[in-house]
């Protein structure tokens, strides 16, 4: 074999091996996506906390937002661009950016929707966090360890729901009438709703659910006999941006 042939053949076979490798890599990635997406389907026995909001019963109730923000020491910052929100209200267009299913619109367009962290089955924010400050708990809650947050804001870029806020300034001067039971945050930290994970072990429902009375139902989505499963069964409900495959745990019953 002449030297040129030898080189040609070895480089070609090298390319072939590299090609096979990349195909294998893609197949592996596909498997990973399929696997993570499958966590959306309920598995019996395990807990996955979820929230159902009855949008018909839900009238504008500032008490719900106030209850959450006061209890969690969420600062009230007047500057709109630097606002910090764990739970907030917006219209259908903002809530479901793809718009409502056609012909469903009408009265729905004028309804107001409560928006909060969706505690996704497949959370993009958890994937991008470089310090694992945000992580998914086994009960489905996407939680934050504020001690670890370095304020890189990758999670804010990744979250398609705008559920995360950044503390551009020291929030201390903007804190509500101080609530000593829950810590505040500091400058340079991202914060968001945690489904009141500090209240659940005590057997209490989240503050928003408590304030909303019957307009919000909190419970275990994996338990077919839970109140939330009964409420969702056989009724038309929407989740925000299902096309992204994040698998939200917050349902809007129409």
């Amino acid at each position: 074999m002449v030297r040129r042939d030898f080189l040609r053949k070895t480089s070609l076979s090298g390319l072939g091996i590299a090609g096979l490798g990349s195909i294998g890599g893609f197949a592996g990635l596909g498997g990973l996506i399929a696997r993570t997406a499958s966590t959306e389907t309920p598995t019996a026995g395990s807990t996955r906390w979820g929230l159902a909001i009855l949008t018909t019963d839900f009238s504008r109730n500032p008490e719900i937002i106030k209850a959450c923000h006061q209890a969690h020491n969420v600062p009230d910052i007047p500057d709109k661009k630097q606002k910090i929100k764990w739970i907030w209200e917006d219209n259908a267009q903002a809530a479901f950016s793809e718009g409502l299913p056609s012909r469903l619109a009408g009265e729905l367009e004028t309804r107001s929707f409560l928006l909060l962290c969706n505690h996704c089955a497949n959370p993009a924010c958890v994937r991008v966090c470089p310090t694992r400050a945000t992580f998914k708990r086994s009960d489905g809650i996407v939680a934050m360890d504020y001690h670890r947050c370095i304020g890189c804001r990758f999670c804010m870029a990744a979250c398609p729901y705008g559920a995360r806020s950044f503390n551009f300034h020291n929030p201390a001067p903007y804190l509500p009438a101080s609530h000593p039971a829950f810590p505040a945050r500091m400058r340079g930290v991202v914060e968001k709703c945690a489904f009141c994970s500090e209240r659940l072990p005590l057997g209490l429902a989240p503050y928003c659910v408590e304030a909303a009375k019957d307009a919000m139902i909190f419970g275990n989505l994996n338990d077919p006999d839970s109140e939330i499963s009964h409420a969702l069964h056989g009724r038309l409900s929407l989740t925000r941006r299902p096309e992204l495959g994040t698998g939200p745990s917050v349902y809007y019953i129409l």
């Binding site: 992580f135 708990r137 939680a143 360890d145 001690h147 000593p180 072990p201």
Partner: peptide, 27 residues
């Protein structure tokens, strides 16, 4: 305590004498 409460969601701590405490610095 921080890791127990935040990562493992365990909010109760039993000390060597068997007394139970809520895992909470602030309270």
């Amino acid at each position: 305590w921080r890791d127990l409460a935040l990562r493992q969601g365990e909010r109760l701590y039993t000390d060597a004498r068997g007394r139970t405490w809520e895992i909470n610095l602030q309270n």
